[in-house]
Structures are given as C-alpha cells and as structure tokens.
Design a protein around this nucleic acid. Structure first.
Length: 273
DNA sequence: AAATGTCGCAACCGCTCTTAC
DNA sequence: AGTAAGAGCGGTTGCGACATT
C-alpha cells in the first residue's frame, strides 16, 4: 500500500491452472515468510502471477490446515443451517467449518445442497398442499404421501449415487404425533432430556433443537426461529455466532449431538420433524 | 464409437471495504 | 477529507471428467 501502481513495471501475469512447480514456490515462500503483503508475494517468490491469484491459491488449496474429502453429515447440516441464517455469506459460513474454504462451500452448495434443499421444499409444498385440501391431517392420504415420499427418497438416492455419500433420511412428521407423545417420553424422539448448557444457551425444552432446526430448515418459509415459541430467534443466533459459538463444536462435540444428531434425527435414516 | 449433455471444481472478475498516505 | 492501493468476498465462467444417448 502507499505505492502507486504506475511506478511498478506492468508485468504480464500468468492465468489459468497452477503447475506443481508454482504451487511449490508459493508454498515454500509463504511458509517461510508469511504473506503480509500479497502483492509482493509473487515478486519475491518468483511467480508470474498477481497477488490476488496467489492469495486465492494459498487459501483454497495450499494452506496446511485444509481438510479434503467428503463432507460429513454434520458439516452439511451446519452449512444448511448457517445458509438459512446468513444467506450467501460463504466466508462467514466457512469460519464455522474448520478446514473448509468459502469457495469450496460455495461450490458444494451450488452443485449439491441447493438441489437437496429444493427437494425438501418441494416435499414441504406438497405436504402443505395436501393439508390445505383436507380438513384434518388424518384425512391426508397415507398412501399418496408415501408415494410422494418414496419418490423423493428415490430421487435422493439418485443424488447419492451421483457421488455424494449421504442420501436424505426418510421423513416422519412429528406433527402427526400428539404433543403428548412427543413430550411425554413415548415419542420416538424421546429419551434425551439433556439440554445444552454452559454455552450461553437458555434452553427451554428437550425439543429445542429439533423444533428450531428441523422446522426452520425443512419446513418453514420464514427466517430461522421466526415464530419459534421457545424464543430462539435471529438475534440470539447472531449473538451466538458473534460470541464465538461454533456449530461444529455443538454438533460433533458435547452440545447438539446429545439432543439432535444421531439418535434424534438420523437414527436409522429417519428424520423426525 | 462418437456426439452430446451434465456435473464438479478451480480460477477469474468485479465490486466493496479497509487502510495508508 | 480525498485518493489510491490492497484485501476480501460473492458471482460467474471455463474446462475437464464422466454419463448418457
């Protein structure tokens, strides 16, 4: 900064894919000297690239802490949740997924998760349509719903075959169960009375995550927690994020996992909503 | 076997924000 | 306060690999 670009000779910067040699040069230079000023990196590293290109290459491919490979279910859920909350703020989403880059997440979203979400919303619309045309949920044809669910399930399996590790869980709808069933312990979701604590949360009931997460991500049109009776809203969510709350900690660690991961949501590939 | 379509990914482009002068 | 340059971000594009016809 502070140096006029016109003072520097105009270099013809190379574009396109990086060669292994270029990667090696950049990696060696950054590991040794750091990257205080990206515009000076290519000059000092002997690369015919611009600083911007070097920065991108380092961030997206050369950083040692980068994680490669398939996304875990937890990572998917984190992306879906944060996207619902933050929109296309890929860099912010990436901050909650260690080892993943914004570019990688963005690509993953466009190539896979968007379709997955679309199918869920399609199902949601179908359910709503069916509910609107019937006087009560019990009038909703089990057969027609199962047909639709199976169709979607097949489509999701097709998605999985396309190279992605996980198909969507089958969906069961807790709203069809009586509240008594859901809350009394006879529910399929019961058995986990533990609430998340010690992380700034003020949890109201065992179904906190189940209600807010699944409802808002899979059913509701509104924003995260918009009408959630437990008081979990955007402000709280943002507060959580700003205070250093990490989804990955909650999901893979001691928090969410007890209330809504394996046992509650995806046990036997069944998702209870 | 060849042509065509689709998908995933890497990289570029353009914009905004921040910072130094 | 104004300006220029760097850094960062999100959208988009281009290309190779693979699948389908």
């Amino acid at each position: 900064m502070g140096t006029k670009s016109s003072d520097k000779p105009k270099l013809k910067h190379k574009k396109g894919f990086w060669s292994p040699d270029e990667d090696q040069r950049l990696r060696n230079y950054v590991l040794k000297h750091g990257h205080a000023c990206w515009s000076s990196v290519p000059v000092n590293a002997g690369l015919q690239r611009n600083g911007k290109s070097c920065r991108l290459r380092w961030i997206n491919h050369l950083r040692p802490e980068l994680k490669r490979g398939m996304y875990t279910v937890q990572e998917e859920e984190t992306i879906l949740t944060l996207h619902r909350l933050l929109g296309n703020k890929w860099s912010q989403i990436a901050q909650h997924l260690p080892g993943r880059t914004d570019n990688e997440i963005k690509n993953y979203w466009h190539s896979y998760l968007k379709k997955k979400l679309g199918k869920l919303e399609e199902m949601d619309a179908y359910i709503k349509t069916q509910c609107a045309t019937t006087t009560s949920s019990s009038d909703l044809s089990y057969e027609s719903l199962m047909n639709h669910t199976e169709k979607s399930s097949r489509e999701n399996n097709d998605l999985a075959k396309e190279g992605h590790k996980s198909s969507l869980p089958k969906l069961l709808f807790a709203e069809w169960l009586s509240l008594e069933n859901v809350h009394s312990g006879s529910s399929v979701n019961s058995g986990h009375e533990q609430v998340i604590s010690g992380d700034g949360f003020n949890h109201h009931n065992t179904n906190f995550v189940q209600d807010s997460f699944t409802h808002n991500n899979l059913l509701n049109e509104g924003s995260f927690g918009g009408d959630f009776h437990g008081g979990f809203n955007n402000d709280l969510m943002e507060e959580m994020l700003n205070s250093g709350f990490k989804f990955e900690d909650q999901i893979s660690g001691i928090g969410f996992v007890d209330t809504f991961s394996g046992d509650d949501i995806c046990n036997n590939d069944v998702l209870y909503i």
